[in-house]
Design a protein around this nucleic acid. Structure first.
Lengths: 154, 154
DNA sequence: TATTGTTATACTCTATAACTATA
DNA sequence: TATAGTTATAGAGTATAACAATA
């Protein structure tokens, strides 16, 4: 009984391990692509990710943002201060709990995100034009899976 | 004649633009995944990417590395100094040109890369186990395309 | 003169530790 | 006391500008 249950589990584990190695390598190379696509608009990687999180999830507490982006609470305090100075986010007091700060994306912040994405998509289109139609189709087919993978992370 | 040639070109351009938008969004979320998978071994993103480049391409000149990783020459000088202090790379004089510095990955550097990848693949496997078999297959099928995309970047 | 790389200096971003305010 | 966030300080990593050495 141990054997009959163990075999398929192990086989699946091995297949996943091999796939994981491949994905990890691909991910490593995609970092280079992503960096070559990024723009000199003065937004750090953490800053851009934080804005994207706020857009996707709506207003969030400062501590929640720090956890989500993997930085310390003081680092997030300062990042939010910078983003507020730039007009990209606003801070609001919580009516329930006087200690809590709610952070909200402003319209200006949304515009900034949209602008960044448009430029990046444009540059990416130029790269896509240089790979084969078959590879383009494979990427298009994998988009839902990529989304699922990113969502499964937490 | 203009019309017959123009139509498929425009159609292809539109399809690529739509795909580019999707890929750009996926890439943005994958970066988050990658960061959540990365480890506190004191290696910056640029440092890790530089080591990976040296492993993939063999010894390279300092300027070539700076261009490849998208940092300035002084920044690469200092990064290489740090990596050399840690024993991960070595510097060698060029016999042809006295101004040139060749940077080479050491055995210790290779071990560091291998260790990082093993840990990341392990964590990624845990995430992969949480998505559907169909999504796993789509990702596996897209691996060559991902590689082609990363290669097409320069 | 042009190219390769280094040094000097300043700025951004981050972490740890100590602190204030609210619960 | 515990929790949410801030302030203080120090360190890593980067860029620009000025420099030295070689071609």
């Amino acid at each position: 009984m141990e054997l009959r249950q163990a075999e398929p589990t192990l086989a699946a584990g091995r297949a996943e391990a091999a796939l994981a190695g491949g994905i990890a390598a691909g991910l490593e190379r995609l970092i280079g692509l992503f960096r070559s696509l990024s723009l000199p608009d003065g937004l750090s990687l953490t800053a851009a990710a934080t804005l994207a999180t706020l857009e996707r999830s709506g207003p969030r507490r400062l501590t929640a943002l720090a956890v989500q982006e993997g930085v310390t609470q003081p680092a997030m305090t300062q990042l939010i201060a910078r983003l507020q100075d730039s007009g990209l986010v606003s801070r609001e007091a919580d009516t329930q709990d006087g200690r809590v700060v709610q952070v909200r994306l402003t319209g200006q912040g949304q515009e900034m995100l949209a602008r960044r994405r448009a430029i990046r998509a444009e540059r990416l289109a130029a790269v896509l034009a240089r790979i084969s139609p078959e590879d383009q189709e494979a990427l298009a087919a994998a988009l839902p899976a990529i989304d699922a993978l990113a969502s499964a992370a937490h």
